[in-house]
Design a binder for these strands. Structure first.
Length: 716
RNA sequence: AGGGAGUUAGCUCAGUUGGUAGAGCGCGACCCUUACAAGGUCGAUGUCGCAGGUUCGAAUCCUGUACUCCCUACCA
């Protein structure tokens, strides 16, 4: 036996061990097996991204579960993948190109998409390398990218099927719009920031009288698109004006005074201007009162021809000019300072404008019903349970999903518009003629699908659906539904809910049984980690400094029921020390087994009680306790409790007491007594190491390799 | 505004059926005792946010209240 260094050195061990695991095929799942299945699909990280602490936490939990189940005799499949992340990736590559003076439009769609693929090929596997550093025991052969051929097939089949059921339609709607990116964006991509601004009170002359109606607004430029002003039906001040008209200053359009209970009599002047094409609330009013929708903006968010003299100005410039002109007309009654939260595009930083545009939508009501019921009935369980309420609340307020994005990177919408009959041909395979009139003048829709569309199909598209050849069929048969979905609470609606709906619709079964929601990783002061704050920590740095096992143990030991986790390096250092303690305890045991004879009874045989001392009996009893505790805690997803139990057993019981006890025995001349204790300590170490393996796989595997008592690899 | 979570030792947090307050880090003293100084032994530290209530007994249950945080929606 070689001599082991008196300090555990992760750098020397981790790479070597990981390569050996991978080469030996330990992570591979079997499509057909007599073992019970256990599967997890990894939430796919952004293909251009780096592994951050949030991923590291997320992956550690999944790897713990997978390794534990694998060691418990399950046929485990942990399927890795990456996401094309449409808007995020496109803007990253676009920014890079800009540095060399090239614009997306200058390059053209085809060339630009090629550039992104180049980028993907260059950096797409970077995150897989980082996952290996962490010890993720994924079945790499099954790694999937959301733009892979198989996934594309799934996407098309789902789109076409839903379209034929009238569950997907095209319509003119108000959406969040990012000017710089020239696309609709999802609510998730909108960040609200508190902005100090003003409320402007503007006088609208009432036609045929000398009266004014004073309206208040934070966005005066939108008045150019006003198509009504609204008062509360019970407001006595304005009863006599309902039904009359006012003239919008600057553009001199006559618009009606309408009444709706939406207006708060107490707020401001009690009169609201209605701009249905540029405000979500006004949009609803516009719909109910059948108002005209006047769009004021171009796709770049500049004022368009409907803005008259303001055409060509940016929103902010238009605002300034409108105010100046109002002042000149003495129609600006007053301005008050005001703080309100304004939506910003999380990718470009620009202010998000509500913008009227033609988009594809998915009807959600019919899909939501079953998805609610499986959670209500407990077929899908949220852990912690409190997220159930959040989920159901969202599902009860569900709205149709805008699935189209005006991007170039993503799954292109499988719809071909006919120039002759102006109808769409929606098809799984590229058509050559219009299915309505037979014309050949058809052109594919320019838009791509929201990234979350392909994400929603992830649990089964990764398993080969809709392909029915035997291999995929077996994979689905064995591993669908998966056992766990592990993710943060920020995407319960955007992702978790949609996977449930799609799984039920297309696989007739839930995509997973348990949704384990963990908290977010924050800095030691509880702030969000971000580049701009300079407080973000690179998990790879932590791994290099303290080892992957220490980082993993840190997460697991502080993972309490969905709470956010404040990350401090000091803590990683503490668990690094613990790893070293395990190392040295093992080293002591190993150094005392030189003359130990492995019993013929087998590797798991423990000496009978009569042959061993009370200390031996005590440590065996304690080991049994901690084994049960760890098992129970993992079953109940109480990871920190399991980690703490291990920590205390190893340090306070095995090292502090038991090892001290064995020292005189190891020096004893009584060979039988020594052999008995050697067997106990070897066996206890063996079982402890295996118990710890899902928590700190590298260290334990390295120790296991040196144990005289064992079967095969630790992880089996 | 609505919803959720939290308030326990200097710091970060445990404390699952109510029964004499716990861990890690940090701090103090002493130890190179043949696995480990990334270590060992010993030690100090808390009216468990505040106020009531239920109980023989409450950090734990109930009511109220203060403060903090998160999510969703934002008032023209």
């Amino acid at each position: 036996m070689k001599t082991l260094a008196d300090r555990y050195n992760p750098q020397e061990v981790e790479n070597k061990i990981y390569q050996w695991w991978e080469k030996s095929g330990y992570f591979k799942a079997e499509d057909k097996s007599t073992k019970p299945p256990f599967s997890i699909i990894l939430p796919p990280p952004n293909v251009t991204g780096f592994l951050h602490l949030g991923h590291a936490l997320d992956h550690t939990i999944q790897d713990l579960l997978i390794r534990w189940k694998r060691m418990s005799g399950f046929n485990t499949m942990w399927l890795p993948g990456t996401d094309h992340a449409g808007i995020a990736t496109q803007s990253v590559v676009e920014k890079e190109l800009k540095k060399t003076g090239i614009t997306r439009h200058g390059l053209g769609r085809e060339k630009f998409v090629e550039k992104i693929w180049d980028w993907k090929h260059e950096y797409g596997d970077r995150i897989y390398g980082q996952m290996r550093r962490l010890g993720d025991s994924c079945d790499w052969d099954r790694a999937t990218f959301t733009l892979d051929e198989g996934v594309s097939q799934a996407v098309r089949k789902v789109f076409v099927t839903l379209f034929k059921k009238n569950a997907i339609y095209k319509g003119l709607r108000l959406v969040n719009w990012s000017g710089p990116l020239e696309t609709a964006i999802s609510d998730l991509e909108v960040e609200h920031k508190q902005i100090k601004s003003f409320i402007y009170h503007i006088n609208y002359p009432v036609d045929g009288t000398n009266e004014f109606l004073t309206i208040a607004t934070t966005r005066p430029e939108t008045m150019l698109g006003d198509t009504a002003v609204c008062v509360h039906p019970d407001d006595e001040r304005y009863q006599h004006l309902i039904g009359k008209t006012v003239t919008v200053p600057l553009i001199n359009r006559k618009i009606k005074i309408i009444a709706d209970t939406y207006v708060d009599k107490e707020f401001g002047s009690g009169v609201v201007k209605i701009t249905p094409a540029h405000d979500f609330n006004d949009y609803k009013i516009g719909k109910t009162h059948k108002l005209e929708f006047i769009n004021l903006l171009t796709k770049k968010c500049e004022m368009n021809e409907n803005a008259g003299p303001y055409q060509g100005l940016k929103v902010i410039e238009a605002r300034k000019k409108v105010l100046e002109d109002l002042k000149a007309l003495e129609l600006l009654a007053k301005e008050e300072p005001h703080v309100n939260s304004v939506g910003h595009c999380s990718r470009s930083g620009a202010v998000v404008e509500p913008f009227l545009s033609e988009q594809w939508f998915m009807k959600m009501n019919d899909l939501a019903g079953p998805a609610k019921r499986v959670v209500e009935s407990g077929t899908i369980r949220f852990e912690p349970e409190s997220w159930t309420k959040v989920y159901l609340h969202w599902m009860n307020n569900i709205e149709d999903w805008c699935v189209s994005r005006q991007l170039w990177w993503g799954h292109r919408i499988p719809a071909w518009l006919c120039a002759d009959c102006e109808k769409n041909t929606v098809s799984e395979t590229d058509p050559t003629t219009c299915e309505h009139c037979g014309s050949q003048k058809i052109k594919q829709d320019e838009d791509v699908l929201d990234t979350w569309f392909s994400s929603a199909l992830w649990p089964f598209s990764t398993m080969g659906w809709p392909n029915t050849e035997s291999h995929s069929a077996e994979t689905q048969q064995t591993f669908y539904p998966t056992n766990y979905l592990v993710t943060g609470h920020d995407i319960i609606f955007f992702w978790v809910a949609r996977m449930i709906m799609m799984g039920l619709e297309f696989k007739k079964d839930v995509p997973f049984r348990t949704v384990y929601i963990h908290g977010l990783v924050r800095d030691s002061q509880g702030r969000k980690m971000s580049k701009s704050l300079g407080n973000s920590v690179d998990p790879i740095d932590m791994i290099e400094k303290y080892g992957a096992d220490a980082l993993r143990f840190t997460f697991l030991a502080h993972l309490y029921s969905g709470k956010d986790l404040k990350f401090s390096e000091q803590r990683v250092e503490g668990y690094r020390n613990f790893m070293n303690k395990v190392w040295n305890g093992s080293r002591f045991v190993l150094s005392n087994l030189h003359d130990f004879k492995v019993p013929v009874e087998g590797v798991n045989a423990l000496p009978s009680k009569t042959e061993i001392s009370v200390f031996d009996q005590w440590i065996i009893a304690k080991l049994a306790e901690v084994e049960k505790q760890v098992h129970d805690c993992l079953e109940a997803e109480r990871f920190s409790e399991a980690a703490t139990a291990l920590y205390q057993f190893v340090w306070n019981q095995f090292c502090d007491w038991y090892i001290e006890f064995t020292k005189p025995i190891m020096n004893s001349s009584n060979a039988a007594e020594k052999q008995a204790t050697q067997l106990v300590m070897a066996q206890v170490l063996n079982r402890t190491i295996r118990l710890m393996h899902p928590f700190c796989p590298f260290l334990t595997e390295e120790i296991y390799a040196n144990l005289p008592i064992k079967g095969e690899a630790c992880i089996i």
